[in-house]
């Protein structure tokens, strides 16, 4: 059976929607939580867990190289080398850095003279974790297979959103273009967006 253009577009639109259902629901939840909840820094957090790990720091390393060495020694799941902004020396000159994951934050201090690493792990609440997950794209994800697969899903969803908008409009235009309420909805959305944009300039 030969499909018409409209049937093809409908097929693409439906398939994209089904593949992306989970992530679209998460995007919706993230948007709502970001709109109505207090910022993460003002929300109640779980008590951080502190642990000490034996670690012998090699001598003569720069701060960056020492952080990378400690990162490899720790081998914490879902992490990637510490971001530059997190590397610092505290008032006692101990080296500190942060290894974030979607659901946790690991703050590490290197006690070179005591041959240990202090790892303070803070578990984020579910809203903060989902927010971080919605930001994970292939360019920024840790090399772990779970984050890579998740980032791939996010990338697929971004392109799918664009295609779903385009195919949705085409579906309307090729099936029920004269539907008055559809025309009004489309016009109201476009006018609202342009008006908000214009007032913001």
């Amino acid at each position: 059976m030969k499909l018409t253009a409209n049937q093809w577009i409908k097929k693409v639109h439906t398939y994209l929607g089904l593949v992306n259902l989970t992530i679209l629901l998460i995007f919706g939840i993230v948007g709502l939580s970001a709109s109505f909840l207090k910022p993460p820094s003002e929300r109640e957090r779980a008590e951080p867990e502190v642990r000490n790990i034996d670690y012998v720091a090699p001598g003569d390393l720069s701060d960056r190289a020492l952080v990378d060495h400690a990162f490899e020694a720790l081998d914490i799941p879902l992490t990637q080398p510490a971001p530059d902004w997190s590397i610092h020396r505290d008032d006692q000159n101990y080296l500190g850095f942060r290894l974030p994951t979607p659901a946790k934050r690991h703050d590490i201090v290197v006690f070179e003279n005591e041959s240990r690493l202090q790892v303070t792990t803070t578990t984020l609440d579910i809203w903060d974790a989902l927010f971080r997950m919605h930001e994970l794209t292939l360019n920024h994800a840790a090399p772990d297979w779970r984050t890579q697969l998740w980032a791939l899903y996010i990338e697929v969803s971004i392109w799918s959103l664009i295609l779903m908008v385009a195919s949705g409009i085409l579906l309307w235009l090729t099936s029920r273009p004269k539907l008055r309420w559809a025309q009004l909805s489309f016009a109201a959305g476009i006018i609202s967006f342009i008006a908000l944009w214009a007032f913001s300039r």
Binding site: F27, T137, I158, W159, L161, I162, V165, G168, I169, W172, R176, L179, W181, A182, S185, F186, A188, G189, I190, F193
Partner: peptide, 19 residues
């Protein structure tokens, strides 16, 4: 249909800015 058409430009903005 109506919801999708009303918010399509906003959704597109989020998608393109994500890119």
């Amino acid at each position: 249909l109506f919801l999708g058409l009303f918010l399509c430009l906003f959704v597109l903005t989020y998608a393109v800015s994500s890119l």
